[in-house]
Simulated assay, not measured.
Amino acid sequence: MLPEIGQYLLVLALLLATALTVLPMIGYATNNQTLMQTARPLSHVLFVTVMASFVILVMLFVQQDFSVKYVAQNSSLELPLRYRITAAWGAHEGSILMWVTVQALWISAVAKFSQSLSLNQIARVLSVLGFIALGFVAFVLFASNPFETIFPVPLDGHDLNPLLPAFGMIIHAPLLYFGYVGLSVALALSVAALIRGAINEQWIRWSRRWNYI
């Protein structure tokens, strides 16, 4: 049941990312306040949805659900709990889902801490970020799905890559992704400014703050 829920949440995330990409930008193009106002709530709901999907993946590892192909390939009955948790991002499918989760967190953070920006400004920024998230969510769903199931269910998994059970693995990927994915905010700010074709002093100050982060 959990793999199916995780899959459905990813489908919902794809729809939310599509809406975040399209609706605020249409609102900006047509000066429709209602459509532009959808940007912030869509950003927060997208984060909750993707985060829930990632938590489910971690739960599948904790429960050692070997009916999930990704779990069976990267865990085993003898793997300690701490490494079962971190094994969720120990290979390609899970690490990409973590990337999307961090991306959604950054989007939600921008939506939360952007009160000084005008509605049409934040609508453009969040729309660009939604487009980036859309690409990654689509990639997870159609090319790197961590919730794919297998049958018959193996009695034990293949175990985690022997190079990965180390403390550094627990913190390395999350810290690395927070930095890499955070650069998408700088990209979105630049693209949003190019769409408008105008950059003022307030925009520069606000952009500098996020670039420092």
Rank of each mutant, 00 (worst) to 15 (best):
Glu4His: 10
Ile5Thr: 04
Gly6Val: 08
Leu14Val: 13
Ala19Cys: 08
Ile26Glu: 04
Ile26Pro: 00
Gly27Val: 04
Thr30Ile: 02
Asn31Gly: 01
Gln33Asp: 06
Thr34Met: 12
Met36Gly: 02
Thr38Val: 05
Ala39Ile: 08
Ser43Lys: 06
Val45Trp: 08
Phe47Leu: 08
Met51Gly: 11
Ser53Asn: 00
Val58Ile: 10
Val58Asp: 06
Val62Ser: 08
Gln63Gly: 07
Gln63Ala: 04
Asp65Gly: 00
Phe66Pro: 03
Ser67Val: 00
Lys69Ala: 15
Gln73Glu: 10
Gln73Asn: 13
Pro80Ala: 01
Arg84Cys: 03
Trp89Asp: 00
Gly90Ala: 12
Ala91Glu: 13
Ser95Gln: 14
Leu97Glu: 06
Met98Asn: 11
Trp99Glu: 10
Leu117His: 07
Asn120Tyr: 11
Gln121Leu: 11
Ile122Glu: 05
Ala133Trp: 07
Leu134Ile: 05
Gly135Pro: 07
Val137Cys: 05
Leu141Thr: 11
Ala143Thr: 14
Asn145Arg: 15
Phe147Thr: 07
Glu148Arg: 15
Ile150Ser: 14
Phe151Pro: 11
Gly157Tyr: 14
Gly157Lys: 15
Leu160Gly: 00
Met169Val: 14
Ile171Glu: 13
Gly179Glu: 03
Gly182Ile: 02
Val185Gly: 14
Leu189Asp: 04
Gly197Ala: 03
Ala198Ile: 08
Asn200Lys: 02
Glu201Asn: 09
Arg205Val: 12
